[in-house]
Design a protein around this nucleic acid. Sequence first.
RNA 1: GCGCUUGUGGCGGAACUGGCAGACGCGCCGGAUUUAGGAUCCGGUCCGAGAGGGUGCAGGUUCGAUUCCUGUCAGGCGCACCA
Length: 802
Amino acid sequence: MEYNFKQVEKKWQDRWEETGVFHAKNDYSKPKYYCLVEFPYPSGQGLHVGHPRSYTALDIVARKKRLQGYNVLYPMGWDAFGLPTENYAIKNHIHPEIVTKQNIAHFKAQLQALGFSFDWSREINTTDPDYYKWTQWIFLQLYKKGLAYKKEMAVNWCTSCKCVLANEEVVNGVCERCGSEVVRKVKSQWMLKITEYAQRLVDDLDDLDFIERVKTQQKNWIGRSTGAEVDFEAETGDKITVYTTRPDTLFGATYMVMAPEHALIDQWADTITNMDEVAAYRAAAAHKSDFERTEVNKDKTGVELKGVKAINPVNGKKIPIFISDYVLASYGTGAIMAVPAHDTRDWEFAKKFGIPMVEVVKGGDIEQEAFTDCASGVMVNSGFLTGLTVDQAKLKIIKYLEKEGKGRAKVNFKLRDWVFSRQRYWGEPIPIVKCEKCGYVPLPESELPLKLPNVESYEPTDNGESPLANLTDWVKTTCPCCGGPAERETDTMPQWAGSSWYFLRYCDPHNSEALASKEALEYWTPVDWYNGGMEHTTLHLLYSRFWHKFLYDVGVVPTKEPYQKRTSHGMILGENGEKMSKSRGNVVNPDDIVNEFGADTMRLYEMFIGDFEKAAPWKTSSIKGCKRFVDRFWNLQEIVADGDSIRPALESVFHKTIKKVTFDIDNLKANTAIAALMSLLNEIYETGSISREELRIFTILLNPFAPHVTEEMWEIQNFGGAVTGASWPTYDEAKCKDSVIELAVQVNGKIRARITVDAEISNDDALAAAKAAPAVAAEIDGKTVVKEIYVKGKLVNIVIKK
RNA sequence: GCGCUUGUGGCGGAACUGGCAGACGCGCCGGAUUUAGGAUCCGGUCCGAGAGGGUGCAGGUUCGAUUCCUGUCAGGCGCACCA
């Protein structure tokens, strides 16, 4: 009997939709489980084969948890604001809202064809005013707490598109889309103070069940470093504060370097004797794009500030001051003390400019290269620090500086505040007005949502303003504070805004009074398991943790962290092992696979393709193995025999398989779970029949992976109700064990025999049986046995002297 | 340069805390069925005739190493003058 997957899959997808069987219940007395996958950006290209990898993995978890009796929330929605839609709208003069609607319909149909058990009654869409009302509301709370502020910032400006680009859209110094030159333009931008949360964003990772590489990548991105600030005095009497992680090397500071943008330089304009040269260098640095600045990084450049020297606070020595673009204005204090003997960059610079070096940590050869090792080495030429280790010296010098008032311990972060403005149409309007009298005034919450107005053209304006800036009627408004004339903010929020809190909305998606009710949040949060791509580790994941912590601080959410567990899937590559892309011509369309092989087979293949966390190349020819598995499962009907128990011969393998599948699903190892089910199926076929109870259990075990064929099987076999209402089978640890086992017998580590023994055999009996095996006996005959090892249930190793 | 990560048959990949390397699947070979092909079913498949040799390479620890340690090579990802 051939399995008609097309008919069966459609039948069950329709039935799931009708019965709402996967809707999360609002019964807060049951144990809950919240599974989350990153909601997609509904692009015009439709679903990619990469999407179902993540969705299937957590669909399996969600389905299993339901069978285990949990109230499961497994929702889906649309992260629908964003550039590609806007660009499509510009090109084709179609409203982005319409494009978005079409794309969502297409995506949703594709997802439903794969049989995911999403709770579609909780579907959300970031571009829906009922949704972004709350995105705007959160922004207002941030503003009220002083965490949103405006700042003059250099932004990326594409000369051809005449628009502002996000950093991610600038590739190798040119526009990602058109390849034209990108220049810097100074604009006033909304910023969010994520730096205020830097410390907590690092510390709180400790209590989370995130995979290690996600934690390290977040930590590296936040870039916490501990050191000290040291105050140098200039001959002018001004204080120059520097940040250093190596205060122990202070006696080796032979010059200072300031960022070209440093404010003191202007103050010293009359004192500096070579101001022309200095000004020229500063102008050149200002013109360089970030790209150029990092490209030139091989060769250090700089100019000495002649006429001003600084005084080293520990030894009173006068040292020269340089400006150089290898010192960044945006990190630390924008100035450093340079210790060429013990810092690679300072060493290069000093070599080039002929500045003397002073070795203050012994252990390297500073003529050859800077000695930067902290772990070994003893302080020399360092006054009261001489003779100490580096660590001791760090503590002592900080104590000294603090006592003298010349410095202090200091922690710094690489993390910068979040640039929150986009000069774009297709995003959430920022709910702020600018009043000449009152300054920036937040809209009253009663006026939310501030809806996106219709515009004629979505194209950004020539001067880099958002398309909204052309809508005079919309821009001109009255000040909520004084009632006088005011102007609306015309920038919109970045795409990261809507996705920073979406998982909260799923808890209570139709609430018009709050972003979600307190009860719903208490019950559902935190997300128990969140899976997504590594590409979102540093932006989305960090941003949403930041917003969540803020919402916690203002009493909106009950948990400090949004996600308890975070895992990450590897990419699915093209058949040639390269990243799938249109231009490489190696894109696989999931629709084609579903049409040809069916959704169950597609799901199985996506899981069976390899280690979930690693990248894996797609191979269409391998799919048939999964198709055969589905068909062979279906054909079990032909050999089903009466019997309401597991036959004794299969008891141990059944219990082992239940154990393995249960364990593997929880550990993201669907690939080996499927392999175990395939093995079990092979064993069943070897016996020539299957009992009804065996088929019932097999059907439940396979259900999370292949939901359609198992539903149909359940119904045909009349197992009662639907398989989605069944209970996940349990295993008996005692029955997982075999009564007789095969031991490998080694002599000096080489296998010489295999013996079959009772599983509970004693140590001595095992060794005796091993030595009695003919091949072993022959080899050890007349030799001295040095050692005998029995590893329970596995092997025996006899070590003899040669 | 720094951080993370990977390296196992023709291919995708298995192997729990050091204990029988290659599970499961693809492909391939042989057979059955078929007018033929496809599909299906059965058997075989790391290399080597064999002793033996095999987890990128070279060492080390161990009775025993894909697993631990040292060095080295190659690929992938991320960050990139962060003082």
